[in-house]
């Protein structure tokens, strides 16, 4: 079975690399080592989403029982999304959990993750803070997600205002990413963010 996993991953890699749709989308997968049990993925932020222009990196761990069990996929790039933990990068996606089926492949997984970016599911959240923001203040969510995409995923045209707020807090002697986390979870209210950082 271990043998099934390795030979399947070999084939799936080929498939992903030959797939015209994925190539067009700049979705790619690479091996982390020669074991075929750990891979890195790369997906671009979908168009017409706050993530557009960013490149998000994924870590894909293939269990030995693959394809009977789903691969463990998580974001290594920090991302602001209701279904992705802003701290660990863990993804809440049904096909990576109980809805996994053996006929699914790396290709379908990557496409599903990409689809998740454009269609968040706030009712089944991984990150409660983000999900709440998404539900209560869509605009704040979009701005935050955009800001995060610019800060971590290399997207361009971030809003000046948010950058300045982060800068103000970092000037107080806080870590930049901590500052960003605090501001994001307080709807960019500097006062509350500082309070949160101090506590």
């Amino acid at each position: 079975m271990a043998t099934i996993a390795a030979s399947r991953i070999k084939r799936e890699l080929k498939e992903v690399k030959a797939d015209a749709e994925l190539i067009k989308d700049d979705v790619s997968v690479e091996l982390m080592d020669n074991s075929y049990l750990a891979l890195t993925g790369e997906i671009p932020g979908p168009k017409d989403t706050p993530y557009e222009g960013g490149t998000f990196h994924l870590k894909i761990i293939i269990p030995e029982t693959y394809p009977f069990n789903p691969p463990q996929v998580s974001f290594t790039t920090k991302i602001w999304h209701p279904n992705i933990s802003s701290v660990t990068g863990a993804i809440c996606l049904d096909i990576l959990k109980d809805q996994w089926a053996a006929a699914m492949t790396l290709r379908t997984v990557l496409l599903s993750v990409q689809a998740l970016l454009s269609l968040p599911e706030p009712d089944d959240p991984q990150d409660a803070v983000v999900a709440q923001q998404y539900k209560e203040n869509q605009d704040a969510y979009r701005r935050t997600a955009r800001h995060w995409a610019c800060a971590y995923a290399g997207a361009k045209s971030s809003s000046r205002e948010l950058d300045e707020k982060v800068e103000r807090i970092t000037e107080m002697g806080f870590n930049e990413s901590d500052a960003r986390d605090a501001l994001s979870s307080t709807d960019w209210d500097v006062g509350r963010a500082v309070e949160k950082l101090m506590s």
Binding site: I4, S7, R8, P67, A103
Partner: peptide, 11 residues
């Protein structure tokens, strides 16, 4: 070719 393969093991 794809249709003649098992979608679990890809053989």
């Amino acid at each position: 070719d794809n249709l003649l393969r098992c979608s679990i093991c890809f053989e």
